[in-house]
């Protein structure tokens, strides 16, 4: 399989009054065609920043310092605005976070669809638009006749999320990027959206990249999982290996601390400490203050993301040369 998107050494910061938040610090990963990639991390670990930097939607105080996002050989970050606009939505579509607030409360759903095609200069007449929009809404199991002429406030949280997915699918993109598709939804609605995304993936053969804080969602949906901790990828591996044989101490800790319904409750062990502030991240490996295997080198040197057995990638001194592999 070819890699469709290649992210290389992405670094982005946010400027705030107190200093700079180093939210993405040298992020590199590949996304294969027709695969599902999950970016898993806690809040404020920089996972949304990666997506925002990739799609050039960083907020006004965000700054991209360096890095490349190669899509079919083109660097998305170096493209001219007009060239990027042609790729945006037609090839790469984004479902933003906070679905509840992403729709304009004063516009009917149909007008959101109309806005989208106007922004991308597509000449569909009204009937064509209705037909296309209905098709996409049916794909996310909404009744177009009821939904198209509703205002966002008339829809439930799960329905709004599905409208946004339909909107993202309108121009038949090849890549769909979703930022926290299930956060702020109830358990049942969450399961429903995950089920829906699974079906869409099968039906449309698209590449999905999604960000989540819930590693259990990744277990259900993803082929590959990138675990983010404090602005760094600490582990990038196939979903089965991440869950069966996690390598990085943070991944191990995270898996040991999640209270999934099928977990052995007596073995749940919280990770000590708290995630660091990205204003003043710890030196060396950013996980070392919470790590039970921390060595001297961890405080001084940042471990590079290296490839170990079976193509698994991990950023930990335990696995680099001179480190203990058995720990």
């Amino acid at each position: 399989m070819n890699s469709l998107i290649k992210v290389e050494n992405l670094r982005a910061v946010y400027l705030v009054r107190e200093g700079t938040i180093k939210a993405a610090d040298g992020i590199s990963f590949d996304v294969q065609e027709n695969s599902v990639t999950a970016i898993v991390g806690e809040s404020a670990s920089g996972k949304s920043t990666i997506i925002e930097a990739m799609t050039r939607t960083l907020p006004p105080n965000g700054r991209l310092l360096e890095g490349k996002v190669l899509y079919k050989g083109k660097d998305l970050l170096a493209l001219k605005k007009e060239e990027f606009r042609r790729i945006k939505w037609k090839e790469i579509a984004l479902v933003p976070q906070a679905a509840q607030q992403s729709l304009n409360p004063t516009m009917k759903i149909i007008d959101h669809f109309k806005d989208t095609i106007e922004a991308h200069r597509i000449n569909w007449n009204h009937d064509q638009l209705i037909q296309k929009a209905s098709e996409k809404l049916e794909m996310v199991r909404l009744n177009p006749d009821a939904v198209l002429y509703s205002y966002p406030m008339q829809l439930s949280g799960g329905m709004k999320q599905r409208v946004l997915i339909a909107l993202a699918l309108l121009l038949d993109p090849e890549v769909l990027i979703l930022d926290e598709p299930t956060s702020a939804l109830d358990v049942l609605t969450q399961a429903y959206i995950v089920q829906l995304l699974k079906e869409l993936k099968k039906k449309l053969n698209i590449t999905l990249i999604f960000v989540t804080h819930d590693i259990a969602i990744a277990a259900e949906l993803a082929d590959k999982v990138a675990v983010i901790y404090a602005g760094n990828i600490v582990e990038y591996n196939s979903v089965f290996r991440i869950f069966k044989n996690p390598l990085h101490p943070y991944t191990k800790g995270l898996l040991g601390s999640i209270m999934a319904i099928n977990a052995d409750m007596s073995k749940i062990k919280p990770i000590p400490g708290a995630p660091p502030s990205l204003l003043t991240p710890p030196s060396g490996c950013r996980f070392h203050p919470r790590c039970e295997h921390a060595m001297d080198i961890c405080k001084k040197e940042k471990p590079p993301l290296i490839t170990v057995e079976d193509g698994a990638q991990v950023a930990c001194h335990l696995y680099s040369q001179g480190g203990r592999k058995d720990a």
């Binding site: 399961a191 429903y192 259990a216 277990a219 259900e220 089965f240 319904i261 099928n262």
Partner: peptide, 10 residues
């Protein structure tokens, strides 16, 4: 419907 932390089971 609760998420399970096991890719095969899920």
């Amino acid at each position: 419907s609760s998420p399970v932390a096991d890719p095969e089971l899920a």
